[in-house]
Design a protein around this nucleic acid. Structure first.
Lengths: 294, 294
DNA sequence: CTCATTGATAGGCACTGTCTATCATCATGA
DNA sequence: TCATGATGATAGACAGTGCCTATCAATGAG
């Protein structure tokens, strides 16, 4: 049995006339005769009583018609739904974002994304890099905004923009009087984020620290870290997008003597079929942040 | 798109593995690969993300799966329903019966029919011959029990049994003393049914009357006619199956000098596909009434 | 590095859905 | 009564396609 056969069945039941039903189906009358006979043979029962003036469904046929209509309707629903899903730039896109980026970047890009890709429904998910990659691998995310490069043929990624690091100092800190701060000076009383944040390692590396800091306070989030710096517990490096939040917290920002920063990338599974949507999102974000490093 | 394709789709979504899904569908793995690729091409979207360890439905696919399940379920319902409808001796059979027969015959045959054809659901409909034939023609009845022969290639019929006529007399009627009553004597004060009842014409013909009776009382139904005879308004002919009812009404019955009666037949449209059911019913009725005329 | 697993591809075969042409049946009307 | 038109069924030919076996390509494990 076939969806086509069911369409023929419905057409014949509706028209009560082989010729007209065949025309409605876009086939010839003999074809309809043959196909319907086959369907009757397959089902093992007479579906229509052929009269001289009319072709009338048998009672058995009448009881099948509802199901036939149901099957055809479901099939049509699939076709319709597929047509609406076909546009790669439409539908839900689950986008992971690391915590040191999300609160500062997302407000900047939501409006441009909505304007450029109105049919794309972006669903953000904030977590640390390793968690995001696991979710990507489990198909629980479609793409992620990260600050680390990643290798392996299973991943694909695009660089979006460079985000410089700035020295963050309490207002009464001796270095706050300088125009420019060197990493070595900053490193003496630097505070960093807790384990798992990629910014932690990147900040340590930028300052020349190699191992972990013993006994140093560690903040669980960037806002907390900024508050600790503002309260005079030490210094830190902040990514440039968080500059506004840092200043609001009462922190003094200074450029680094040796420029340092991180590259924000968007990453996805290499086999992800809707990579076109990801690339479109990448284009919008890169466009919005163009020239940001300067 | 095809029901088969949808079954493949569901199997692959369930197993997440081309080889296993193909085996479940009873086809080879390459066939499943090809067919699924075709379905993806037709729908214009990727349905599965092929990984090295697993084949995972895309979100678009997940939204289609429900409809696919629906379509397949409806198709299966058609197959199941067809299997149960296939038995020709099952299901509803709408059986017309003329009014001068129904109340006397039906009580006799219901039990044997239920026993012999338990799956057949007989739905009686009482009306006069012409109305029954119209309903048959409109497919509102499947068969009818009639007392008249009927010609034309569009009809088919089987004789079931002969039903003799008996002379029906008021207890105090002069003829009630006879052992046998001749039609000519009976005809002098005969009462007949109203127009439309086939028994009216048959009774008149049996008594030698050719035209209509002027000014004679006409009963709308056989029970009424029997009551009129019992009350002494005149005589009549009753079909033998109504003998019990006539005697209950206080009527004296006598055999006719020249045997007369009517043939009860079952009739159906020549093209009716379930004629096997009608013929089975005919067999049961004929068997129950065998030897009735004697 | 080698081997096993998994999905994709190629070529060939058989089935079947479709067409045109034609027939059989039946009702209608001159 | 017979010709005519309408309707569905049948026959034969052809093209499309679903399916198989054989094989390849990519990937991951030992």
């Amino acid at each position: 049995m076939n969806l086509r056969d069911l369409r023929y069945l419905l057409a014949l039941a509706e028209h009560g006339h082989f010729g007209l039903a065949a025309e409605a189906c876009g086939i010839s009358q003999p074809t309809l005769s043959v196909q319907l006979r086959k369907l009757e043979d397959e089902l093992g029962l007479a579906l229509f009583e052929r009269g001289n003036k009319a072709v009338i469904p048998t009672e058995a046929c009448a009881r099948l018609l509802g199901h036939a209509r149901g099957a055809v309707a479901e099939a049509d629903a699939i076709l319709t739904l597929a047509r609406s899903l076909r546009a790669p730039l439409a539908g839900r896109l689950r986008l992971g974002v690391i915590p040191t980026l999300a609160p500062y970047l997302l407000p900047l890009i939501f409006a441009p994304l909505r304007e450029a890709l109105p049919a794309l429904d972006i669903e953000p998910w904030e977590d640390q890099t390793s968690a995001l990659l696991e979710r990507l691998q489990r198909h629980e995310l479609d793409a992620a905004l990260l600050a680390t490069g990643l290798g392996g043929a299973e991943w694909q990624s695009l660089a979006l923009f460079e985000e410089p690091f700035l020295a963050a100092l309490p207002p009464d800190h001796p270095l706050a009087a300088r125009e420019v701060v060197s990493q070595a000076e900053l490193a003496r009383d630097i505070l960093v984020l807790a384990d798992g944040h990629c910014l932690r390692e990147q900040a340590l590396e930028a300052c020349g620290h190699r191992g972990a800091l013993g006994g140093t306070l560690r903040a669980a989030s960037l806002p907390t870290l900024l508050n600790m710096v503002a309260a005079g517990y030490g210094t830190t490096l902040v990514p440039a997008l968080a500059a506004g939040a840092a200043q609001d917290a009462g922190i003094v920002l200074r450029p680094l003597a040796e420029q340092a920063g991180r590259t924000i990338r968007i990453a996805w599974r290499a086999r992800f079929p809707r990579h076109a949507a990801v690339e479109a999102v990448a284009g919008v974000i890169a466009g919005r942040l163009r020239g940001f490093a300067a």
